[in-house]
């Protein structure tokens, strides 16, 4: 018996080759390459405006790149011979920065939307039950299921967004700054939740973040975007060993050092 998201599959989850993105004359990406392995949590970092979100939007097909090849879960999505029918959408979940919940639907109904879209034949009763346990899986109280997004706090909205992203049992999860705007306790809880779900469900996670604690605590590898490319990918010690000035500043700045110390204390 295997799980749907099979972490032992050794084809990479995402391969991006020679990606070029340009807005008018301003190039955001110029020949960007990146490989995400199955079953890992990959953190993507970079200064503001370096195109982290644009990279994610390119991978999930919200942004049409000027050139480059993108392969997700073995399916060619962009470049020569690309698929136009994105059946692979069923196999990934996306959490947008603000949660992006449908504001006219309750949390439970929000989670039901993707299930209804892809499996309309499913019994409505079972669909409602699935939606409810997904909501609770993300640690929201039962009472949240019937609430509208406007009645939730920022952290709860993110959890609800995560529940919707998990609705179809995806193999691949995209998280755009999941801990931004959360208090440190909420952020740490969200990190733990991400890790737990990743381990339980065998997910591959593509995670954009500015949160150094998140990077230290849950990311298997970190990719750094600078100068329109991925300049390095690896564990944090490996990145620091490259000696690139931006990476040095990032991890050895005062915040980086504090996060590192906290991480070391946690390990001990």
């Amino acid at each position: 018996m295997r799980m749907k998201a099979n972490p032992d599959d050794d084809t990479p989850a995402i391969v991006v080759e020679g990606l070029v993105n340009r807005f008018d004359d301003f190039a955001v990406h110029e020949g960007l390459d990146l490989t995400v392995r199955r079953g890992e949590i990959l953190g993507v970092v970079g200064g503001s405006g370096t195109g982290k979100s644009v990279l994610m939007r390119s991978i999930i097909g919200l942004q049409q790149p000027e050139a480059g090849r993108i392969t997700v879960l073995g399916r060619n999505l962009c470049g020569e011979g690309a698929e136009t029918d994105l059946v692979v959408r069923e196999r990934w979940g996306v959490l947008f920065q603000g949660g992006a919940l449908f504001s006219t639907l309750s949390v439970g109904e929000n989670v039901e939307v993707p299930i209804k879209q892809f499996h309309p034949e499913l019994d409505p009763g079972l669909r409602a039950e699935i939606a409810r346990y997904k909501v609770m899986l993300t640690g929201l109280p039962e009472s949240a299921v019937q609430k509208y997004p406007s009645e939730l706090s920022g952290g709860m909205k993110k959890r609800a967004g995560l529940a919707r992203a998990l609705a179809l049992d995806p193999e691949l999860l995209f998280l755009d700054e999941p801990t931004a705007g959360l208090d440190p306790i909420g952020a740490a809880k969200f990190d733990r939740l991400t890790r737990e779900l990743q381990e339980t469900l065998g997910l591959t996670v593509f995670l954009i973040t500015h949160d150094l604690d998140t990077l230290y605590e849950i990311c298997d590898r970190v990719a750094v975007i600078a100068d329109k490319k991925i300049i390095a990918v690896g564990t944090i010690p490996e990145l620091i060993a490259t000696g690139h000035p931006w990476i040095e500043d990032y991890f050895n700045g005062p915040r980086g050092r504090t996060a590192h110390k906290a991480h070391m204390r946690g390990e001990a």
Binding site: R2, E112, L137, V145, Q146, T200, L201
Partner: peptide, 20 residues
């Protein structure tokens, strides 16, 4: 693996209504 999944979804109370 299946054990982990079973453990994650066990004891979740899911009877109720999703609609406000």
């Amino acid at each position: 693996e299946a054990e982990r999944l079973l453990a994650a979804v066990r004891d979740l109370e899911t009877i109720g209504d999703n609609h406000p």
